[in-house]
């Protein structure tokens, strides 16, 4: 009872030929679009910040306590270039950004680039670890919500994300601080080691990111499990591990990845609140202070850096998507 099957033509193990890689045209177009977004953000941020009534110099130095004469104010404006028409200022500012000169802070007089360089690393650590923790939480919740032993348990895990979404970030931070540090004394508030000081802020920033991520992931897993090819895989004798690892994971990854890119914006907003609540230095704190003092050069730099980071992350997601789903590799035909 054996099949008469023609032997494969050559003796060497056959190689399955891989499909064509994503086209360079696709990648180039996406990079072009990304650059356009950054430029547009820069111009828009500049116009909005300069559309505020009066200019930054007047706002900063015209208060009576400083007692500056109109002549002195005018000299300051000339020194900062604020007397120029807006398009000249835009050009100067753009030229500065391209050459790495982000201007000087009106508040402290320090180079903006120095301020940014100092506050970027702690925020990167916070955001990176927060996002990693969010991803782990999301995958854990989604896996439990799909595969937990009893229906009751699965339902419980399914109700976690909506709960997490509805909790404000600052409230999580305050409660964590109260409970973990003040009540339980697990993490010292003063003289904490850098690692210890990161724990609560990372948890705070991760929870609101993990929630929507888990929601999308659960939905994507549900949708994939309902696909006929999953039934076919089960008909081949596949068990739960095979189904999850080989059939479902990659299919469920794509929508989750897309949402992850968008959620990156949440991280930036989350950093502002978290760093303020936990009194950490960082980009979020720098932003909050700059807003309070109308420190326009700093704000301009922060907006542009956020835009670049956001665009780069989403560009990476876009370029990664065809690697996950081969259907996206072909140029779409109407």
């Amino acid at each position: 009872m054996s099949v008469v099957i023609r032997p494969a033509p050559e003796a060497a193990p056959p190689r399955w030929r891989p499909a064509a890689p994503p086209t360079a045209r696709f990648a180039l177009r996406r990079v072009g679009q990304a650059l356009l977004v950054v430029v547009a953000t820069f111009v828009l941020a500049f116009l909005l910040l300069h559309a505020l009534p009066g200019d930054a110099i007047v706002a900063r130095y015209a208060s009576p306590e400083l007692g500056l004469t109109p002549e002195q104010l005018e000299a300051l404006r000339v020194a900062y270039g604020a007397d120029q028409p807006w398009w000249v200022q835009l050009g100067l500012s753009a030229g500065g950004f391209l050459t790495g000169d982000l201007g000087t802070s009106l508040q402290s007089g320090a180079e903006v680039s120095t301020l940014i360089a100092a506050s970027l690393p702690p925020t990167l650590a916070l955001a990176g670890l927060g996002f990693a923790l969010a991803a782990v939480l999301a995958v854990g919740i989604a896996a439990a919500a799909t595969f937990a032993g009893t229906e009751w348990l699965r339902r419980a895990f399914r109700s976690l994300p909506p709960l997490f979404v509805s909790i404000p970030v600052f409230w999580i931070g305050i409660v964590l601080l109260q409970v973990v540090s003040f009540r339980l004394g697990l993490i010292p508030v003063i003289n904490a080691s850098p690692a210890e000081a990161l724990v609560l802020p990372v948890v705070t920033i991760a929870i609101p990111i993990a929630a929507p991520l888990a929601q999308v992931l659960i939905r994507a897993i549900d949708d994939t499990l309902a696909e006929p090819f999953v039934i076919v895989a089960r008909a081949r004798g596949a068990g739960p591990a095979w189904l999850l690892g080989r059939e479902v994971a990659r299919n469920a990854l794509l929508p989750t990845l897309t949402i992850a890119g968008v959620l990156f914006g949440e991280l930036i907003a989350g950093a502002v609140v978290t760093e303020t609540v936990f009194a950490r230095s960082g980009l979020g704190r720098l932003t909050a202070d700059a807003v309070a003092t109308r420190d326009i050069p700093v704000l301009q730099a922060v907006v542009v850096i956020s835009a670049v980071a956001f665009v780069v992350i989403n560009l990476a997601v876009d370029l990664l998507a065809p690697a996950i789903d081969p259907r996206l590799r072909k140029e779409v035909r109407a």
Partner: peptide
């Protein structure tokens, strides 16, 4: 027994193959 002694050929070939797997991987699965 599934896949080894009892096999299934299903209705819609459009949705019965995992879209992110190569044909070879699908055939190799059993």
């Amino acid at each position: 027994l599934r896949g080894r002694r009892i096999a299934l050929v299903s209705q819609d070939p459009g949705t019965s193959l995992n879209p992110v797997q190569t044909i070879g991987a699908s055939v190799a699965a059993p």
